[in-house]
Amino acid sequence: MTIKAQPRRTNIGSEHPETYRALAEVAKRAEEAALAEGLTPVLIELVKIRVSQINGCAFCLRIHTLDALAKGAGAERLSLLPAWRESGYFDEKERSALALAEYITDIRDSHSNTGLYGSAAAHLSSGQMSAVSWVALVINSYNRIALSSAYEVNP
């Protein structure tokens, strides 16, 4: 039996570095906006981790889990993030931000999941809704770059 070799993946960030740098600038501005709207550094990382969990991006999960721990997120909270709805570890603002991030990430179901958006709007200001949306949009982009470019994740 012949095993087909996998085609070499193009690292799109390396291939078009100016475009990648532009995304990095958007990411920086999204995080600045989130902080300016009163979102905590830990909450910003929780959004990035949750989006990366949904997308299955090991590369971004590793980075943002370490970042969250460095910013004071507890390991126990991080371990419960996939089941945030069932745990009492997340406050209303965090729950709202996570719901919004899931709504934006799982876009194929956005028409049937408008309740996620509505529940987010109940506890976040308009500015916070926008900032969380930008953070989620940017990490979704990074997830897609890492996955499509087959970034390696080794110990």
Rank of each mutant, 00 (worst) to 15 (best):
T2A: 14
I3M: 10
A5P: 06
S14E: 14
S14W: 00
H16M: 02
P17Q: 10
T19I: 12
T19D: 00
T19C: 03
R21L: 05
R21N: 08
A22C: 03
L23E: 02
A24H: 01
A24S: 07
K28Q: 08
E31K: 07
E31M: 00
E32S: 08
E37S: 15
L39V: 03
L39H: 03
P41E: 09
L46V: 04
L46Y: 13
V47F: 01
V47L: 02
V47G: 06
V47R: 00
K48N: 10
Q53W: 01
I54N: 10
N55Q: 12
N55L: 09
A58F: 03
F59A: 11
L61K: 01
I63Q: 07
H64I: 09
L66M: 08
A68E: 09
A73R: 04
E76Q: 10
E76Y: 06
L78C: 10
L80Q: 05
L80S: 07
L80I: 00
W84P: 06
W84M: 06
W84A: 04
F90C: 07
D91P: 02
D91A: 04
D91T: 05
E92K: 15
K93T: 14
R95P: 02
A97C: 05
A99S: 15
L100F: 14
I104T: 08
I104Q: 03
D106H: 04
D106N: 12
I107R: 15
R108V: 15
D109H: 14
D109F: 14
S110M: 13
S110I: 04
H111A: 15
N113I: 06
N113W: 00
N113L: 13
T114E: 13
G115I: 01
G118H: 06
A122T: 14
A122N: 14
A122I: 12
S125D: 11
S125V: 12
G127Y: 09
Q128Y: 13
A131P: 04
L137V: 14
S141T: 09
Y142A: 11
Y142E: 10
R144P: 04
I145V: 15
I145D: 10
A146Q: 13
L147K: 11
S149R: 12
S149Y: 14
A150W: 11
E152Q: 13
E152V: 07
V153E: 12
N154R: 12
N154M: 10
N154A: 12
N154H: 11
